[in-house]
């Protein structure tokens, strides 16, 4: 299994060539804009840090970015049929997926980590900024694997991904504490808080569980996705 730069470059060009990529812009701008606004008005960080960094940054910006990118690198190619060009090559399906996964993780980290760093820095300093970057990187690894798999399991990956992010992690994560063990968002909070302890973040899952669960989700989704891509049926248009 190797990374294939040709696939990665076509994938990246495809991703940025679609208008959908513009959807990635508003959330980072909103996060940075609101953080700047708070600082400019001297609002203390303990009043806005939690809702902005966690409520907007980790609960919305990071997973939604990963969702748009993760489904964009594969789901859209399956939708419009261009995936056939890559599938008709004598390449291991793992190589195809890994190359797309690398692009998805890379774009997600850059898009989410930069605004998170800025907001974290404004709230508490460089350390929290860097902690958030590391947390976002871990989150991007798990989310991207999950959403790539979703693109292969369903023809509506964005919808199902939204249900996971908003209903499972958002709603149930708040009210039903048991679901937190299966929530990527919680792992990100735990890892960030361990690297940059502040009273802005409240971890609910232990560091060990977070790391193990993130690894299981990433590897499990990866294995399932490769197997699924091996048996991807491409049906005809007319018959």
């Amino acid at each position: 299994m190797v990374y294939n730069p040709t696939i990665a470059s076509i994938t990246a060009r495809g991703l940025f060539g679609r208008r959908r990529v513009l959807v990635l812009l508003p959330l980072p701008l909103l996060l940075v804009g609101l953080a700047l606004l708070m600082r400019a008005n001297d609002v203390p960080a303990r009043d806005w840090g939690q809702p902005l960094l966690v409520g907007l940054g980790l609960a919305v910006l990071l997973p939604i970015t990963a969702l748009i990118v993760g489904t964009g690198v594969l789901g859209s190619e399956i939708d419009d049929g261009t995936v056939v060009h890559i599938l008709t090559k004598p390449l291991s399906r793992a190589e195809i997926l890994l190359s797309k996964y690398v692009v998805a993780v890379g774009v997600t980290v850059v898009t989410a980590a930069v605004p998170l760093f800025v907001a974290g820095y404004l709230a508490s300093g460089v350390r929290l900024g860097l902690g958030l970057v590391a947390g976002a990187a871990l989150g991007a690894l798990a989310y991207s694997a999950l959403f790539l798999l979703l693109s292969l399991l369903t023809s509506r990956p964005v919808l199902l991904g939204l249900v996971y992010v908003l209903v499972w992690e958002g709603l149930l994560g708040t009210w039903v504490s048991g679901t937190r063990v299966f929530s990527v968002e919680q792992y990100v909070i735990t890892v960030t808080d361990r690297l940059a302890p502040t009273d802005l973040l409240t971890p609910n899952v232990s560091l060990t569980s977070s790391l193990i669960m993130a690894a299981i989700i990433t590897a499990g989704a990866g294995v399932l996705a490769v197997n699924r891509l091996r048996s991807l049926s491409v049906a005809g248009e007319t018959s």
Partner: peptide
């Protein structure tokens, strides 16, 4: 997938990058 070393396909669907 090793099949594609010796096989080429032009599908009907006009999908190109």
């Amino acid at each position: 997938p090793s099949l594609y070393r010796h096989l080429g396909l032009v599908s009907e669907r006009e999908a190109v990058h």
